[in-house]
Design a protein around this nucleic acid. Structure first.
Length: 218
DNA sequence: ACCCAGGGTCATA
DNA sequence: TATGACCATGGG
């Protein structure tokens, strides 16, 4: 059976460094993390452009702005009313929290999860890509890919899956670096070879992982 | 016309 | 705790 780290090495060999998170600043990372909830990144890019064009990619500006006006800038991402509210909720926290980066990872994670509209994946995106903490991000692609590869059993919830990855990768040298690349690689790979529509993974760079598993089932 | 996308909250049982 | 409804645009 292939280990999660061997899967990582194959993906890295195939695709190379992913240069995640695609954003100019830590604040832009966190905004993007909220906007991309259940939404394709191409739509998020359009909303980010709208915000930059209005010089509204700014915490104080977003807090001060009317929610309706913010929602109009967020139109391309869908759920724009919900996300305008969530973005404001996040910006209130960010504005009122002095030096959140001074907190240890667990405390920071609890603070982020306490924001209405920030769930486990969004919080972990922020922790890894904005605060550079060694937190493994789980998303729908990760769950689907590793389920199809047969590397995880049952239907683990978010936290169980995150703990599983972090345990399997506990000995790697630079966790922030590897977790960063790994999540980007999973998304890159899954977009191409592990979508909901195209369920079979026959010709990708992880094929032998899949074949080995199928054979091991007898 | 239908399904999906780098989720999360809330009401209900 | 465990489902289901809901949010809503853009691309295949």
């Amino acid at each position: 059976m292939q280990t999660p780290y061997q899967v990582y090495q194959r993906l890295f060999k195939q695709y190379g460094p992913q240069h995640w998170w695609p954003a100019d600043t830590a604040f832009e990372v966190m905004v993007g993390a909220i906007l991309t909830q259940n939404t394709s990144w191409t739509n998020v890019e359009k909303a980010i452009v709208n915000l930059k064009k209005e010089k509204a990619l700014n915490c104080n500006k977003i807090v001060a702005m009317q929610e309706k006006q913010l929602a109009s800038l967020l139109k391309p991402v869908g759920y724009f009313n919900v996300k305008a509210r969530r973005l404001k909720n996040f910006c209130h926290w960010y504005q009122n929290t002095r030096q959140p980066e001074k907190n240890d990872t667990e405390k920071l994670r609890k603070q982020l999860l306490a924001i209405n509209g920030v769930g486990p994946e969004t919080a972990d995106d922020m922790l890894l890509y904005a605060f550079h903490r060694p937190v493994f991000v789980i998303d729908a692609y990760t769950h689907r890919l590793f389920t199809r590869l047969g590397l995880i059993e049952g239907e683990p919830d978010y936290e169980e899956l995150r703990q599983w990855f972090e345990k399997k990768l506990q000995r790697v040298d630079d966790k922030v670096k590897v977790f960063n690349e790994y999540h980007g690689l999973i998304v890159q790979h899954a977009k191409q070879h592990c979508t909901a529509r195209k369920p079979l993974c026959e010709t990708c760079c992880l094929k032998r992982v899949c074949v080995f598993h199928c054979h091991s089932l007898g």
